[in-house]
Amino acid sequence: MSWYEQYRSRYARLKQAGKPFFPYAVFKDMVVVSLILAALCWLAYFAGAGLEDLADPTDSTYNPRPEWYFLFLFQALKFFPGRLEPVAAVVVPGVSVLLLLLVPLLDRGPLRHPLDRPFWTGLGLASLAAFGHLTWSGYHSPLINPTVEKDPLISRGIRLYREMRCAYCHKINKKGGNIGPELDRSAGSGSEEWLAKHLRDPQSVTPNSAMPKLNLLDDEIQALVAYMKSLGEPFTAEAPKLFTQNCASCHRIGETGGEAGHDLSLIGSARDKAFIKRYIGDPSKTNPDSSMPGFKGQLTEVQIEDLSRYLAGLGR
């Protein structure tokens, strides 16, 4: 234990020869703290803190992204698929933290310069590199679900729809009350002018309507109309049959259909009608690697339009 005493007396000498904490160290601290405060204020003022849409527990298409300093953990999970996932999720971080905690008990002895401790310096650098690499690749990894750019007007409409409890009377996507019509089946067929009039004063366009006058503001009506128009256009009863005859051998919707192609149960939440229509007509134009045949010629233009409307409404 002699180097303990040696260290203590050496440190006591160095401390004695050193300078008082105030003002020497305090001055440096103040300089750094001022810079940090300036940077914080700059970021807070110009970048601020984001706020996305209200949490929607039913939205299965959202791409969860953690804060950047947890990204490495997300990325590490991908190396341990299936039943090994707990290893990456819990075992590796747990062991790492324990190791970190115990570093002073593992690396003992008087040597402190990084070049005199090649093992520990190397381990530290390797951990840093791994963290950096995982964060970098996590940041650039493709999103699990394709991102859908939602029109802010539509988002506002969704929010109003929820705030005003429209679902008390109306159904969208099979959820809501029975008093009013199912909006994703009917609202899309009305023109924007008709919808706006209806929202302003239901009885003026539908004399027997049970819907109350809501005294909405113009921009609220605009938002609700945008939301209604986004619910999709009506399709005929033919469309699901067309799907069964032409698509179901490869694609599935819900429980029925083939396995060769993608599951289309939620396709409407990721792709709009125009995209789907293009794709059905000639897949190779949009995706050169696709093995799906084009249906232009095989189906009429009207049938493809009908089918696209049907698919675009799925999972919305």
Partner: peptide
């Protein structure tokens, strides 16, 4: 309590839920 908040926490609590035995 926005989308980012909700889903990041959903994933986080799922990760915690994978702890062997006590998850």
């Amino acid at each position: 309590w926005d989308q980012k908040a909700y889903w990041a926490t959903a994933v986080g609590t799922n990760i915690a839920g994978q702890t062997p035995v006590i998850g």
